[in-house]
Design a protein around this nucleic acid. Sequence first.
DNA 1: GAACAATCGGGTAATTAGGGAG
DNA 2: GCTGTCCTAATTACCCGATTGT
Lengths: 65, 65
Amino acid sequence: METERLLTPGEVALMFRVDPKTVTRWASAGRIGSIRTPGGHRRFRESEVSALLADLTIPASQSTA
Amino acid sequence: METERLLTPGEVALMFRVDPKTVTRWASAGRIGSIRTPGGHRRFRESEVSALLADLTIPASQSTA
DNA sequence: GAACAATCGGGTAATTAGGGAG
DNA sequence: GCTGTCCTAATTACCCGATTGT
């Protein structure tokens, strides 16, 4: 089995440079998949977060011509 | 975990001494790389911004010779 | 059981996005 | 062509006290 690395809201917040509450809001809005602990805290799949971050990343168009 | 430092439009605007709107236009024009949050807000790589800022900073030719 | 940091939930200000006219 | 300002709507950030995780 492959051990999927899980990230906390704080970790994801650091990656996107947003508030942990914002990450929670994304999960509530269904913009990102989340896993809840028995206590109600959210965890996020590292692969999904990385993919989302990469997908939303727009490189600069080099126009040094 | 290696986390790339990201900057908000407002922070970049302060660095360049321009309006945040102008920074947004640079991103739209592809003149600077950008990362969008799932909510649509932009974030910028600190390293890229610094490099661009340094590139625009033309040091007065040292005429010490 | 106790302590600490982080996350939970809800509510309110600040920032940002997008279009338009100067 | 580029930038700063005005507008409205959406998103995000910080406030609180209570619960969860380590």
